[in-house]
Amino acid sequence: MLSADVVTAIDDLELAARLVVEGLRAGSHRSPFHGYSSEFQQHRPYRAGDDLKYLDWKLLARTDRLYTRQFRETTSMSVMLVLDGSASMAFPESGVTKWRYATVLAASLAHLVVSQGDAVGLLAITGDRRTYLPARGGRPHLRSLMALMDRMTPDGTWSPARGIARGAELLKRRGVVIVLSDFQDAEAETHRELRRVASHGHDVAMLQVVAPDESTFPYRGDLEFEDLETGERRLLDAGSIATSYRQAFDAFLSRSRDNAVRDRVDYALMRTDVPPGVALRDFLMKRGAKPGTHHVGSRETR
């Protein structure tokens, strides 16, 4: 698995996403995203490795032969990627920024969804600008989605209403809404919007992107901290506040996770020093194991 530094350093977002997704496929054969409806099409002889879930037991009892049931997908799934492009995502100044990491994650997810034949859309908020691409399938659409993300730079502040709520509205029908953000601002409003979207029947996931320096706070001495979003400055003795800051940050992460669990929202903490492939695999495996999600059998096992 390629490291976070290597993957995010690749200029071509499409290539980076493909590398991540290929890494994922090497370890898993099942899609974590599942459509809503499928129709039985035919039987075929069982092959080693087929999921036993699709084995036709009745036919086995009658004929004493192993047959796997195959389905035809009737409804494709729509995934809306809501990307936080606020200025705080430009942290840290050097190394892997949260923004770059989030775009690689989003591109990988989009790649994964499109390769399954599903539709993916994008809604990114960068400052006053809102970039929207409706959910569609196909390679050309995937390429234009990645090109859009490549052109954006973090700016301004994050608005949950403009991002999460609008993203779900634009999906038009029930689908999967994946929000990639650091969730630093408007904490209460963000969770309210996530809860509301989930209650409307959408499958909601929040990927909280965190830089290592945010959690470890390795600063000492007198520093003038500048808020990336508001420009506010504060002169602080970093050493003396480090412990209390870390406690506050841990509490913030716990709140985010607890609220997500309470609101039936998938939660994943994405640290930018973890390879995107590993982080995505963990997230997708967790989703796959989660009961109650809509399933569509993978093309391989059908």
């Binding site: 942290f91 601002d185 520093l223 003038e224 901290f225 508001t230 506040i241």
Partner: peptide, 16 residues
Amino acid sequence: ARRQVFPSLRLLRDAR
């Protein structure tokens, strides 16, 4: 003092 950008001062504001 040296300047250090930070995603949000919200949690620093809470810190003592």
